[in-house]
Design a protein around this nucleic acid. Structure first.
Lengths: 189, 189, 189, 189
DNA sequence: AGCTAATCGAGACGGTACGTCGCGTCTTTCG
DNA sequence: CGAAAGACGCGACGTACCGTCTCGATTAGCT
């Protein structure tokens, strides 16, 4: 069917792994295509055949990070949101801050990187939005704010602390965020 | 007092202005030190004597953007917060997004840069915190959330949209943020 | 056999030619690597891939000057030595003095350069030595001096005038040298 | 009489000494005016007030090297020439070869350096010329060669070996040179 | 079995920018 | 007025990186 020599299936994994290591070490700018190829034991030609630019390579690497996060809504928005936001916070804390920052910078520069980064979070953000929407429909959340804004106010502070203020993000903070958004827990009074 | 030839005071202003122009035109990567020096009518050595690297130059440029923002609390938290958050949003929008993102990346890598960036916003964030605190004391804001969290929820979403989702930040959005934080305006019902 | 892309054979010639032109115009210091690359229509990186420094480039250029000099001994040592020494003097005069001097300086610093410079003259000096030896065997040269010393006394003064005294080297001077070494021409008395 | 602060008399010596040390270490190109000034504990301005360029500084340094060499002609040209040429050879061997070579290179580039180098040797070369002339007048040297050429043939080979062939210069070689120039010693037969 | 087509490794190449070094000039303050 | 200190302009050097290119060697499917 396909004529010539088939592509080496191991190349992709080795290159993306090498790229990840380079990115961890030196961020986006510190990632050198030459070094990635070298570290992966692959010719630069081979690399460029698959990803037409450094940005696209990083995009692919990021996309590969997307892990399927199992989430089953329990119906209790307070519990569900806490679980979801905690998951996001945990993921953000698992990688070096510089990586997140460099990714944001690359996203600002390269539209394609931006898309891939957004796609990375899409699933989780959609889940958050869904929970918020359902809670509002059930009257459990004050209705004077749009769901989109509430999502931003739940997730945005995580990035804000990470990239701007540098203040710590712990489970207490996540609870405070949810608490502030949903209002006081009626069952606890 | 100081022995040698004093530094040409005009250099700094000319260089930073040139750097700003270059940054606006082509982002961080598009900013060439040679071109900046050329445009500022300054030798590259002179430039490097003051800022030891391109990154430091950009940091200095950003720091120079800190404008004293006159703010007089009116006593009405709704109006004051809208004004303050609008000011922050305006400033963020006035410079290229890449600049903000690159700044965040540099801040993550270099503690010194992080400090300078935080110092950049310190004044405004203090003002927001003060207004929130006063409003809570006056009973105009629901008291179930700490002021620090509320500040994060007011300002964080701006960065979040800018650096992550890429969604637009307009005056309507700012109003929604304030609205969501303070609750429905009682005077409007 | 050789794996990668083969080197562009035209590069070397074009660069060395450009370097020669620059050297003629402004001497060693006046030779700018950037300008050479530009004039040769070659990227500076390409140039540095072959010659790791400006000095090595100049050395290569000099080495390239070695021209096969046809020499057929006539049997008359007076005529042969005059021809050979004139040839050396002509070559020395054809290039800027600074080039010769810089070469000697480089040779003193870098053994490898020294070798290449000596190799440059090897052929001609061997010819001079051969002629002197033959003449001595034939009794045409006073035998109280070793051939090696006579060669030094024939060729050394050329360098001496060029590099030290700065006095001119013309055909009359060459004749005087040969005359002084061989003694008066018996046929002319 | 003279207004203002008098010149610091120690400056000159300290600078020339520092320049000599730099020149020994790295040759003419390796000598940096900034470093010389620093090492001498002198401001660059002060240095440039005295010597208008790096070349002139080196000239002054070389001139300072000229040592008065006592020489009393004995009347025996063979002995006198041996003594003189040995003295030159000794001086040449006392300093690093690179220094001699760099000096020659600088002389070729900078006319003023050339003059100073020639002046350095003037005294000794004049002595050699005088002895040769006297010997010729006394009929002790074959008269078919001009004194100037004979001088070149006595001194030139020293530079030739030093800068070109790299062959050693010892007392035996000096004797051979004199021997070759004056012819066989009649007293020894 | 031979031809054809695609892949891979290796490295040359152009272009652009970076940061450093050196020279010689200048502008100050201090003695 | 000399000296110290250091800023400044200019120009060159050598390095790093990106993305393109040109090779030879390999590995398949197709005729």
């Amino acid at each position: 069917m396909v004529r010539g020599r088939p592509r080496d299936t191991g190349v992709e994994a080795r290159v993306l792994e090498a790229a990840m290591a380079e990115m961890r070490a030196g961020g986006y700018d510190g990632l050198s295509v030459d070094r990635v190829a070298d570290r992966a034991g692959v010719a630069k030609t081979t690399l460029y055949r698959r990803w037409p630019s450094k940005a696209e390579l990083v995009v692919a690497m990021i996309t590969g990070l997307r892990a399927a996060v199992p989430f089953e809504p329990s119906g209790d928005p307070r519990r569900d949101l806490t679980e979801l936001v905690t998951g996001i916070a945990t993921t953000l804390s698992a990688v070096p801050t510089t990586l997140i920052a460099d990714l944001a910078a690359a996203a600002a520069r390269e539209p394609r990187v931006g898309e891939s980064v957004r796609a990375l979070w899409a699933e989780r953000h959609a889940a958050v939005t869904a929970v918020i929407g359902q809670a509002q429909a059930d009257g459990l959340v004050p209705g004077h704010a749009s769901p989109a804004v509430l999502v931003d106010q739940l997730v945005g502070p995580l990035y804000y602390r990470l990239l701007v203020t540098g203040e710590p993000i712990d489970s207490a903070y996540v609870r405070e965020l949810v608490h502030s958004t949903l209002g006081p827990d009626p069952e606890k009074s």
